[in-house]
Amino acid sequence: MCRWNAYFGQPILVSELLYRTQHGLVAQARQANEGIELLNGDGFGIGWYDDFGEAAVHPPGRYRSVQPAWNDVNLRELAAHLRSPLFLAHVRMTTGTPVQQTNCHPFRHEQWLFVQNGEIVGYPEIRRDLLLGVDRTLFGEIEGTTDSELMFFLALSFGLQDDPLGGLARAVGFIEATGRAAGIDDPVEMTVGMSDGDRLWAVRYGSGARSRTLYESNDADTIRSLYPDIERFQGLQDEDRIVVSEPLGDLPGLWREVPEGTAVVIQPGEDAHVPFAALSP
């Protein structure tokens, strides 16, 4: 059920995380080790920022396709030449909505990018009621039919741009209240990645504490110390961080699991880990 990763740090080629690791995102599209489904072949997308601090002037770029990620030659070409300090990538396994480009992640609004793995349980039954929660000034920007895009626009409607975690928490609270009114006990299972071009937020949450897997890379100093003979790791800078649905390789000490009900804030300087829970909107 979808795989995604996100990167924050010194500019690197997007191909580093998609292709040039033991178990990169494109490999995960064909064989997800920790996903519910093995294949994630219902489309893919990447979204990237050119320079920190420029997102408000230059919105992020985006490339999406309904092709399986492993079968798209254009993705391999683009990833081998695209260098970015902050990007998000996603491979999709549909939970029932059509395989079409507008349903592929990342979703974008102004300088914001959003990816999600999981589902709104009972989405077909409560979709209409959820759509009514979207601010009328944003409603016309919804292009697809996925629960993920709708979650993003609900978060925008509940204040994501001014209060990212609060806006998302209020959106989740609205979804839970709507679902439970329809007899759905645990409506939300999710990991979310989102960015405004300056910071990166990653959230793991489930209404019934059964959310999807999520990992963050260990700090650069620890990785350099663990593997002094690996040139690639010695080039890591202190700000370099990766968030993934599942590890990109099996070397010990590289990855830390993000706990249930936790938000990770990756930013210049010290990162933060804070509890995440649904809020009444």
Rank of each mutant, 00 (worst) to 15 (best):
N71P: 01
A181G: 11
D185P: 01
P281Y: 03
G9E: 02
N74T: 14
A69Y: 00
G122T: 09
I126V: 13
A182E: 09
Y63G: 01
G140M: 11
L39P: 02
D229K: 11
R92A: 14
R20M: 14
V73L: 08
A6T: 06
P268Q: 07
R92T: 00
L165P: 10
M93W: 10
R136A: 08
R64E: 12
T97I: 06
L17N: 06
R76P: 03
L17G: 09
Q116G: 11
H81M: 15
V258G: 00
L130V: 00
T95K: 12
V121P: 02
Y205L: 07
G193L: 12
T102M: 15
F139T: 07
I120R: 00
F52D: 06
G197S: 12
E16I: 05
A55S: 15
V244W: 03
N74I: 11
D51E: 08
L251I: 08
Q100I: 04
G140Q: 06
P252G: 05
D219S: 03
Q234T: 13
Q161M: 14
V172H: 09
F233G: 03
Y7P: 05
L168W: 04
R170E: 07
L138P: 09
P228H: 02
L214Q: 05
G9W: 03
L254F: 04
L113G: 07
S225D: 14
L248R: 03
E149I: 11
G261Q: 07
F87N: 08
E189H: 13
G269Y: 04
G269M: 07
M151N: 08
E110P: 00
Y205G: 12
L138A: 06
L160M: 15
Q31N: 15
L75G: 11
T146K: 00
A89D: 04
N218E: 13
R3L: 13
L86M: 05
R256K: 13
Y63N: 05
G159T: 02
N33Y: 08
N5T: 15
D221F: 06
